[in-house]
Design a protein around this nucleic acid. Structure first.
Length: 149
DNA sequence: GCCAACGTTGGC
DNA sequence: GCCAACGTTGGC
């Protein structure tokens, strides 16, 4: 899952303990959110930063939640087309697990992985929520030197 | 700051 | 339903 660290970083997640992942307004990303299960591991990716890369680990602590911001007129994510009896945007709650000892940078990910296996290294990829195959996830964990798993 | 990629909008 | 225009994302 991607986040711009100047907006919400892995340290913010650590501070909060968990957070509702609101504001996703892309159907493909939403569908990935819908498919998540309790306890799923999440790589927390810092986008639009220098350097971009995976900053830490989270896990899913709540599933199939209605994104509250879709009904919040004040929110920039407000969606007037979405109705409370049939919410359009579902999301998850993300809990903090670990901040990697060092950020695992995008260029390292590009060296290690094939764009077919890891969406984040795909050219022009803009999806903010993408699946990671288990075999790739295990390799990333190894590269990250995290001691939390 | 540039620009490629690509999703969304709206006229037709 | 097509597609040009436009806006956003995000790496560099």
């Amino acid at each position: 899952m991607k986040s711009e660290p100047n907006v919400y970083s892995i340290k913010d997640l650590q501070h909060d303990g968990e957070t509702i992942w609101d504001g996703v307004r892309n159907y493909q990303a939403r569908n990935f959110l819908r498919s998540m299960e309790l306890g799923d591991l999440v790589f927390f990716y810092h986008s639009n930063s220098n350097p971009p890369g995976i900053a830490g680990l989270g896990k899913i602590t709540g599933i199939n939640l209605h994104d509250p911001s879709q009904f919040d007129v004040q929110s920039k994510y407000y969606d007037p087309q979405s109705h409370p009896d049939k919410p359009r945007w579902q999301t998850v709650k993300l809990g903090f697990l670990d901040e990697f000892p060092t950020l695992l940078p995008l260029d390292e990910l590009r060296r290690q992985f094939n764009p077919d296996d890891l969406w984040v290294v795909r050219r022009g990829n803009r999806l903010s929520v993408t699946p990671v195959p288990e075999s790739v996830a295990l390799q990333i964990l190894k590269l990250s030197k995290t001691s939390s798993i």
